[in-house]
Amino acid sequence: MDKLEPRCRKEAAIPHLFCPGCGHALVLKTLGRVIDDMKIARQTAFGIDIGCSLLAWNFFDINTIQTHHGRTAPVMVGYKMAEPKSVALAYVGDGAAYAIGLQSIIHTALRNEPITMIVVNNENYAMTGGQMSPETETGVITQTSPRGKDMNLGAGLKSPELISSLGNEKAFIARGSVANLVELNKLIKKAIENQTKNNSFSFLEVLSICPTNWRTNAKDSFSRLESMSKYYKTGIISETTKEVN
């Protein structure tokens, strides 16, 4: 396996099957590096959802389970409870997390379950062909909003902010972007450390690109990402200031 790939990458699954230019591949590349650097491949359990995240089912040479739609959080909560020394990751898309799976995420955060959730936000249900998701901003045209998302349906859901409002002071809540992979690396590391060092919940949303369903070329994909970050602000939204036992 060439040195460009993270060590925890599964060689048999190269090349991966994400679309050309897919943001997932950038997030997974960064996550792989963090897992390598933290040396946690052996104890990591990687849960993925239905949607494009499922294409990561054989991405890593790490225990991986593809769950049902919106159910990755409870599966990883159950696993972590059964195996407290593990690093339990839940890796899902915005459709899975913020619509069908939102109930579970809220309660997982409320109970401070010690799992780390990474939500890849490309503002649409990509695998099913680009329908609008709770993250789609008003006016945006998708398969189920052919005239642009109606204002009456509300602005895009600011989920890390929502989860922060639940008041769990021990949680690490942040938003990153594939526009800044150096920053993303740091955020992923912090998110995982909040589980391993503080036995607490972490939530990291990552703004991402979807050239296939956005029908954008490389340059325009990153331009749209830039404009997304004007509404969905990146940075740390909430973190605990002291180490918790």
Partner: peptide
């Protein structure tokens, strides 16, 4: 069709 949009 399968699940992947590209690559298969």
């Amino acid at each position: 069709f399968g699940v992947e949009q590209r690559g298969t």
